[in-house]
Design a binder for these strands. Structure first.
Lengths: 206, 206
DNA sequence: GTCTATAAAATGATAGAC
DNA sequence: GTCTATCATTTTATAGAC
């Protein structure tokens, strides 16, 4: 039961409980800093019961990463080569920002993994992710060739969208501390700022 | 010897050895994921000898964070209210990018700490860091009032410089995996891209 | 499927010799 | 200042009853 396939109702429910608890704990402490005990307590299960569903701590972590990886890249996959360039890029930007707001734990799970050298997914980054990014970079380059957006480095354009949007989830406590308690939701201003930033960057010069 | 003051030559040398080793280990595994054993081995010292200089694992971590905090904020502190606005901002951007290139472990040490909720420095973020950022945001706002840069949200402008520059250190393995082995140094392109981005964003409209 | 009990290893920290 | 030996605790994982 390495990647458990839920059959019964109770199995599905417990696997969901464990996954949710593990997401909280791994995203807060990283893989090495997380303990099975914490996850079990967070899921309201005994430790042996948890290990009945996932044989090892690493199996839970692997399950989370591979489950989330696809979802995480959907917005980039959906960037339409046949769409209107600036609109496609701004839609991608907004969907990424929305994922930071709605799924900050998922963002921090990946942040922990990558900051710590991506030991569990380095191969995926160098194969699947690289292939997807190279493909989308080619689309961006074509849009630049056609004069529909300003010419710039397409890979670094994608990196900048990642870093700017994920920052609000990954560095949430810092953003909150700097803005102070009277500004509990930074996302409306963030969206306005980032929309302006990329619109100015990419709108073709007159 | 909580924040050890080096007196003899050998003390200074060992404290430097330990600090450097601890920086490597903490930045790779986070506080909870790091072990004293790893740090001792990395420093080529026995574990008890290491604990002769720092009484606990937490003391080493605290020593690193407080030593590095000041250095880390120097570029922002140095942004001159009386300078030429765009030049000051681009200089800040470039110094931050250079810190990512030259001190990626320090960047990842902070990234780990903050992603994991900043348990050891949350108070500093809400006091010292907030005060500094609010002060510089006021300078940016004045520049906007004077029409010397485009009007935008000053706090999110600062956040964007942080996220864009630190990304190259914190997510180094991802950047490397996506760009591939034939592009081992992303910094020249990053600097060109980011310079264009902020120049377009901030240069006042005609 | 779930539990109590526990084995086996790791980890933070200390004792005490030199 | 540095080391070997070791303690106390935490942590991963398993055994076996129900």
């Amino acid at each position: 039961m390495n990647q458990p396939v839920a059959r019964t109702r109770i199995q599905r429910k417990n696997i969901r409980l464990i996954s949710d608890a593990a997401l909280s704990v791994f995203s807060t402490y990283g893989f090495r800093g997380a303990t099975v005990d914490q996850i079990a307590k967070e899921a309201n299960l005994s430790k042996p019961n948890l290990l009945y569903y996932f044989p090892t701590k690493e199996a839970i972590h692997r399950h989370l990463l591979s489950t989330l990886m696809d979802t995480w890249l959907d917005p980039l996959r959906d960037m339409d080569p046949d769409g209107e360039p600036l609109e496609e890029i701004l839609t991608y930007l907004r969907r990424k920002l929305q994922m930071s707001r709605d799924h900050p734990r998922e963002s921090r799970l990946f942040a922990n993994e990558i900051v710590q050298g991506a030991p569990h997914i380095l191969d995926l980054l160098a194969t699947d992710l690289k292939a997807l990014v190279d493909d989308k970079a080619a689309t961006l380059t074509r849009w630049m060739d056609e004069g529909r957006i300003n010419r710039t480095d397409p890979h670094h354009l994608i990196f900048s969208i990642w870093s700017l949007t994920q920052h609000y989830a990954d560095f949430e406590v810092q953003v909150g501390a700097v803005l102070g308690p009277e500004k509990p939701d930074p996302y409306p201003e963030a969206e306005a700022y980032l929309t302006t930033l990329f619109t100015r960057m990419l709108t073709p010069d007159a």
